[in-house]
């Protein structure tokens, strides 16, 4: 009994399926990252077929005691709210979008979220461009495909894409789109560019 599955399917997935139940259901996920107030929830809401839901993830981490050098590092549990939406792709594929907090102290959470993800949309507000650096660092380090999405806030138009790529220190030609996070078609376009990029990188 050879337990090696060529496709690497994770685990014995569909035991005990009711007769007639769909056996080939497959979830996919895309992360939506970026700084505070950059439009993550708005983008998820624009794409989702259900109103965005919110879920909580509990994170256990070692507090580093930076606020008080006398504190012995101790285990702390933090609860992080995360919103998500759902897009039915076809009769068996369901895509989930997870809006993720953008600070690097949430990396513990990102590790779990990034596992098996198609990729990430990194939302950027050009008025606060450095808010997205942590996310870009993270996805680059983990080799997760990502697209840079410049959100159309007032006063952010007319900026040269190559200057933005340069400031973000992403390679020339790295996928970059302009989005209005409130607009479904615009957000869909960002996902398409991301998936094309992921496909170009896949073997």
């Amino acid at each position: 009994m050879d337990s090696v599955h060529a496709d690497g399917r994770a685990g014995t997935a569909t035991t005990g399926v009711a007769p007639g139940a769909r056996r080939d259901l497959l979830p996919l996920k895309i992360l939506v990252a970026g700084g505070f107030g950059v439009g993550k929830t708005t983008l998820v809401a624009a794409l989702s077929e259900v109103p965005p839901l919110s879920t909580e993830q509990q994170m256990t981490s070692l507090s580093d005691g930076v606020d008080d050098a006398s504190i012995v590092p101790e285990k702390t549990t933090t609860t992080v709210a995360m919103d998500f939406g759902r897009v039915t792709i076809d009769d068996s594929l369901v895509l989930y979008l997870f809006g993720t907090p953008g600070q690097s102290r949430f990396w513990f959470m990102w590790d779990e979220l990034a596992r098996g993800a198609v990729g990430a949309v990194v939302l950027v507000d050009l008025r606060r461009i450095d808010d997205c650096f942590a996310a870009i660092d993270y996805f680059e380090n983990r080799g997760l495909p990502f697209v840079v999405a410049l959100n159309a806030f007032p006063g952010t138009d007319g900026v040269d894409d190559d200057l933005v790529r340069d400031a973000l220190a992403v390679p020339p030609g790295h996928p970059l789109v302009h989005v209005d996070a409130r607009d479904d078609a615009s957000c869909t376009r960002a996902l398409i560019v991301l998936v094309e990029h992921a496909l170009a990188r896949s073997t």
Binding site: G8, G11, A13, A18, L26, P27, L28, R115, G116, T203
Partner: peptide
């Protein structure tokens, strides 16, 4: 029944 993601050996 649980339906898990299908990923290749590269985890994608």
């Amino acid at each position: 029944a649980v339906h898990l993601p299908l990923v290749g050996t590269d985890g994608r």
